[in-house]
């Protein structure tokens, strides 16, 4: 079969020289089932025009568009309880940091000779101050007694050492008292 005429029409089509009738001839030709292999690549071009014409909007298109435009889209977003408290925790942490820094600064600026002991662990043995007074007095007496005893012994040993040095011209170290 000679397809020279079709080829010429195609040539003129690309040159934009075809008339509407000639373009209709081409469309009709390419709608055939059997098309030669060397012209097959042009089929889609002419068939597409035909099939595209057949594509139409569905009956429910308007309804779908209107539904999308008119109804606001509300999506439920679940927020856990802990997230609600997050600002509170952050605020608490900030307050704790500020308080700690403040206390530290206060301590460093006002460095009184304060004991740094943790007295919270102390459990008072006595509830009566008079009884506690007696116990403290006795303890103070014991410490006082030890200091006096030390001073007394140290003085005695010093005298003994001095005497020994004088007599023997040799040094004798006191063994009973360790001088700190």
């Amino acid at each position: 079969m000679d397809y020279k005429y079709i080829e010429q029409l195609l040539e003129r089509f690309w040159q934009c020289e075809t008339s509407l009738e000639e373009e209709q001839i081409l469309r009709t030709f390419f709608q055939q089932k059997e098309i030669p292999a060397h012209l097959l690549s042009y089929k889609h071009l002419f068939v597409y025009e035909q099939t595209a014409k057949e594509v139409k909007l569905g009956n429910d298109f308007d309804a779908k568009i209107l539904a999308r435009i008119e109804k606001p889209v509300v999506t439920a977003h679940h927020v856990p309880f802990s997230r609600h408290l997050r600002p509170l925790f952050k605020a608490a942490a900030v307050v704790a940091i500020i308080l700690s820094l403040g206390t530290a600064a206060q301590r460093s600026f006002h460095r009184d000779i304060e004991t740094d002991y943790n007295y919270d662990t102390y459990k008072d043995t006595y509830t009566d101050p008079q009884v506690a007074y007696g116990e403290i007095s006795e303890a103070l007496m014991s410490v006082s007694e030890s200091i006096n005893k030390y001073q007394e012994q140290y003085a005695n040993d010093s005298v003994a050492v001095a005497a020994a040095n004088t007599e023997d011209n040799s040094q004798v170290a006191p063994d009973s008292i360790k001088k700190e």
């Binding site: 102390y122 459990k123 101050p129 008079q130 506690a132 007074y133 403290i136």
Partner: peptide, 15 residues
């Protein structure tokens, strides 16, 4: 162990 806390010490000093 016998303890006299700072609080009790203050009470003692008030006597």
């Amino acid at each position: 162990c016998v303890s006299v806390s700072p609080k009790m010490m203050e009470e003692v000093l008030k006597t």
